[in-house]
Amino acid sequence: MAGTQVPMRLRPLHYFWATFRRQWRSDISTTFLTPVLYLASIGAGLGSFIKGGQVLASLGGEDYLSFVAPALLVTTAMQVAVSRSTYDVYGCKNWWSGAYRSMLAAPLSVGDIVTGHLAWVAARVGLASAFYLAVSAAFGAVHSPAAAADLVVGPVVGLAFAAPIIAYAITVRHEQPFVMIFRLVMVPLFLFSGTFFPLSQLPTGLRYIAYVLPLWHGVELSRGLYQGSLGAWPALGHLAYLVVVIAVGSMAASRTYRKELAP
């Protein structure tokens, strides 16, 4: 029997799954409707204005929909990850939901809780990525079967945000800081990470900021996969960077979670 048991670090998923089962209808509509709207308006609608040799050359020879669709998969991954690792952490920690405290009263450790919560974020991002991939394929934006690897890239990008953010979210005493994360981190990244135009359009200084932040690495990976043009070395470089962010974020989260939950 012991062989079939769920490992400790994944047992927090029992809780998240139970809450998801109750509210998946409302969750699904926001997660899944948004990409369709974006692809229709920005990709197909706005994209139909962006034609002509010079512009297309700087987009890598593709039409605008094909340029923007793989990036939007990654920004969606970021959005899903950030919302699941801010309000959800606050909710699990505080008295109106005892999720973390009841996990700790059970045999789960603080480390299991961190891993379990991140696993849940990864699962949710994976679900959103799969849907996004299907929709953008339907729009004709996928040009290579390699795009299927975005089912991994999406969650990896999501975790690169989720790990450092949960490390912070567990420490807050009220929810206001989350609004600042949305406005000051997510929106600028969304707009300036090579999502809607190539980074080469940015002044040099800003370009280096984009290089340091995780989203651009995800955009590059996803775009290369959609177009089937991703080289092995750039791919490894981007992935390695994201993995380092996840590792550092997780370690920080283990520390802050321990301090908050088991003083």
Binding site: V6, Y15, A18, W96, S102, A106
Partner: peptide, 30 residues
Amino acid sequence: RARLGVVPQEDNLDTELSVSDNLYVYGRYF
């Protein structure tokens, strides 16, 4: 903790879950 039962000072129930789901999910932790 696998051999203890803990009833903390403040109820740590999962308020958004049903009564039986609270028992079920907690049992799955074990």
